[in-house]
Simulated assay, not measured.
Amino acid sequence: MSILANAQAAKRWLNAAPPNMTDVNSSIERTIRDARAADETMNIFEHSSSRSPSRRRM
């Protein structure tokens, strides 16, 4: 959810008159940070599930 919230905040700040570029930049940096963390979590999950023994089909 934080990725979405950061992206929405950046959009609001871009649409402000005048755009608040400092806050836009901060929001985009947080979006990138959170996306990388989510990607790392998914990679760990995928790696751990690929190492688990296969279930027998019944």
Rank of each mutant, 00 (worst) to 15 (best):
S2F: 14
N43T: 07
K11E: 15
A16I: 01
N25G: 05
N25L: 04
S48H: 03
R36G: 08
E40R: 12
T22Y: 09
T22L: 13
Q8T: 15
M42N: 02
R36P: 13
A16Q: 11
M1W: 14
I44T: 12
A38Y: 08
D39N: 11
A35H: 05
N20H: 03
N15C: 13
S50I: 05
S27I: 03
A17L: 09
M58H: 13
I32F: 01
N20I: 01
I32Y: 03
T41N: 08
P18E: 00
A16H: 07
P19W: 00
T22N: 15
A16E: 11
I3Q: 08
M1Q: 09
R56G: 10
L14M: 13
A35N: 12
R30S: 13
D34C: 01
D39P: 06
S49I: 05
S48I: 07
A10D: 02
S2C: 09
R36I: 06
M42I: 06
R56Q: 07
L4F: 15
I28L: 07
I3L: 15
T22M: 11
N15S: 14
F45V: 08
F45K: 00
E29G: 08
T41H: 07
N15A: 10
I3G: 06
K11L: 15
E46M: 11
N20S: 02
D23W: 03
W13G: 02
W13D: 07
R57Q: 04
L14P: 02
L14G: 04
R33M: 11
N15Y: 11
D34F: 07
F45Y: 02
A17G: 15
D23T: 05
R51H: 05
S2I: 09
R30K: 05
S48A: 04
R56N: 10
R33Q: 09
P53M: 03
S54Y: 02
P18T: 00
R56S: 07
I32C: 01
H47C: 03
A10G: 06
L4V: 15
R33N: 13
W13I: 02
I32M: 04
T31V: 11
R55M: 14
W13K: 07
P18Y: 00
T22I: 07
S52G: 01
S52R: 02
N6R: 08
R51L: 12
A9Y: 15
A35F: 04
A5Y: 12
H47G: 05
R55E: 06
F45R: 04
R12I: 15
I3K: 04
M58Q: 10
S49R: 05
R36M: 10
S52L: 08
V24P: 01
F45W: 01
R51I: 14
W13Q: 04
R55V: 13
N20F: 00
R33L: 10
D39R: 10
S48C: 05
Q8A: 15
R55P: 03
P18V: 01
S2M: 14
S26L: 10
R30A: 11
R55C: 14
S52K: 01
I32G: 01
R33P: 03
A10R: 00
R30D: 08
